[in-house]
């Protein structure tokens, strides 16, 4: 039981970390114009929150308008 809980939490966080890297490199600029050109320290600072709340951001990223010139 305890092992299962720990595994679920670790799995969720691992997916969050996997999502976090491309999100902080590209996705964040798509969902929030104010993040364009923001320093990498800012992106690192919000990484723990991205790992914790990745489903919310993933949904926003999917719904974000495509940038000009994208297929």
């Amino acid at each position: 039981m305890a092992e299962a809980i720990l595994l679920i939490i670790l799995g969720y966080a691992a997916v969050g970390a996997g999502f976090g890297v491309p999100f902080l490199l590209r996705g964040i600029d798509r969902i929030d114009p104010a993040a364009r050109g923001s320093p990498w320290t800012f992106r690192l600072l919000i990484l723990p929150g991205v790992i914790a709340l990745w489903p919310v951001l993933a949904r926003r990223w999917r719904r974000a308008p495509r940038p000009e010139g994208a297929p």
Binding site: D32, I46, P48, G49
Partner: peptide, 16 residues
């Protein structure tokens, strides 16, 4: 407390 600290930046205020 972690969730609150992790979402304390204005980025979260705007995007949530």
């Amino acid at each position: 407390l972690f969730l609150m600290a992790a979402t304390s930046h204005d980025f979260w205020l705007k995007n949530l």
